[in-house]
Amino acid sequence: MSKKNGAGGPRDRGRAQSLVVPGQDLGESEGQEAGHGVIVMEGRLRATKNGRIRNQGSTVSIEPLHTRYIPRPGDLAIGYIEGCTNNIWFVELGAPFNAILPMSLGPGKVEFGGTRSVMDVGETILCRVQEVEETHSSVVTMKGMGLRKIRSGVIEEIDPHLLGRLIGKGGESLKRLKEDAECRVIVADNGRMWIDGDLDGILEVRRQLDLMTVESRPIPVGGGH
């Protein structure tokens, strides 16, 4: 315990107070909006996730420690082609449900029955989420600036909640990473990033990512358990 007080400093102690667990009471709901990870039950706010409290205006939300990506319209996403029919591709986004990419929204001109020759199973695409219905049927598109089939480089995964840290204030951290490694790096909203460049650069970016993932573990492991 002395370690926590010594190394954490006052800033960390302040943050510690805002860590909540599912079911935790967050006070009266009157005059407050329930944001992400928060629900209203019997006139009171209640946490539904393990994470840190964020107050923005009158909205109380939780920034989860771990989370799965949920697609929203407009998101830039990196997906894998998981299957196809005559006129549709099925795209895996690392989300709770797959999306479809209709032939009409595919790259360039595709003829009916020619989906596989344009993009085969196992290929990787940079796409945008066009719509997500209530039932979670979702559609992605490749019509738009820069959207394409990815032919070189590598895809790395990073927990969606670490994206902010990766990109940094005003994109500073990401910019520095790109310059240091002399790589092209595109970070998609679904926690996947495309790194393209020479092998040494790619390895350098991966090394930095691994470092960040280790550092970001917010909870010190140890103590009584």
Binding site: V21, P22, G23, G37, I39, M41, R46, T48, K49, N50, G51, P64, L65, H66, T67, R68
Partner: peptide
Amino acid sequence: ASVALADAGVPMTDM
């Protein structure tokens, strides 16, 4: 299982 669900970020009204 409740703790593992919370660890996975699955939303719950309570554990």
